[in-house]
Amino acid sequence: MTAGYELAQVNIGRMRAPLDSPVMKDFMDGLAEVNAAADAAPGFVWRLVDGEGDGATGFRFWGDEWLIVNMSVWTGPEAFREYVYGPAHRPFLQRRREWFEHLKEAVTALWWVPAGERPTVQDAEKRLTVLREKGPSPEAFTMKDAFPAPEA
């Protein structure tokens, strides 16, 4: 945590096929393991979970049934980066084009939230829209173009 703030992130993907299809089988089969690794990762605080099970595949983004969303909160960018590029998640990242279409617009946004605050899907939609329309700013940024936490 940085000065009373935690790092929120949203990541969306446009599925190539329905979740129960053979195309998405490896993704769905590995989801519980990847989520468990996140839950156990140093610096992990929270992640969006639906009532369907281990992940958040029941949520839709911008009302689009082909977009799925991943949201989480971390103590800071270092912890988040370690998980994303770590051994449990990296293989998923490397195979993302098998399961998800390549989108030209930003699919990941980061922003700071007061410690203990949990963002909603609507919050994430707003942040990703801001990033797409205005580029990186303190309101929504990327790992490459990060902004520091607000002053306490």
Rank of each mutant, 00 (worst) to 15 (best):
G4H: 13
G4P: 09
Y5V: 04
E6H: 12
E6F: 03
L7S: 00
V10F: 02
V10C: 04
V10Y: 00
I12Q: 00
M15Q: 11
R16T: 01
P18K: 08
P22R: 11
V23N: 01
M24H: 01
D26R: 10
F27Y: 08
F27R: 03
F27M: 04
M28A: 10
D29M: 09
D29R: 03
G30M: 01
G30C: 10
G30V: 11
V34M: 07
V34Y: 01
V34R: 07
A36R: 15
A37Y: 06
D39P: 09
A40V: 14
A40P: 05
A41L: 12
A41P: 06
P42Y: 12
P42S: 14
F44A: 12
V45C: 12
R47Y: 06
R47T: 07
L48C: 04
D50S: 02
G51K: 13
G55Y: 03
G55M: 01
G55R: 03
G58H: 03
W62N: 15
G63W: 07
D64R: 05
W66E: 07
I68R: 05
W74E: 05
W74C: 11
W74M: 08
G76T: 01
P77Q: 15
E78N: 12
A79M: 12
A79T: 09
F80K: 10
F80C: 12
R81T: 14
E82S: 14
V84Y: 08
V84I: 15
G86W: 10
G86T: 08
A88Q: 11
H89Y: 07
H89Q: 10
R90M: 15
R90G: 05
R90P: 01
P91F: 02
Q94A: 14
R95G: 02
R96P: 02
R96V: 02
R96G: 02
R97K: 12
R97N: 10
W99M: 06
W99C: 03
F100T: 07
H102V: 15
H102N: 14
L103G: 00
L103C: 06
E105K: 15
A106L: 05
A106E: 09
A109Y: 05
L110N: 06
W112L: 04
W112N: 02
W112T: 03
V113S: 01
V113E: 09
G116V: 08
G116P: 05
R118W: 02
P119T: 02
V121K: 06
V121C: 06
Q122W: 04
D123I: 00
A124C: 05
E125C: 02
R127Q: 11
V130N: 09
V130Y: 11
R132W: 00
R132M: 04
E133P: 05
K134N: 13
K134R: 15
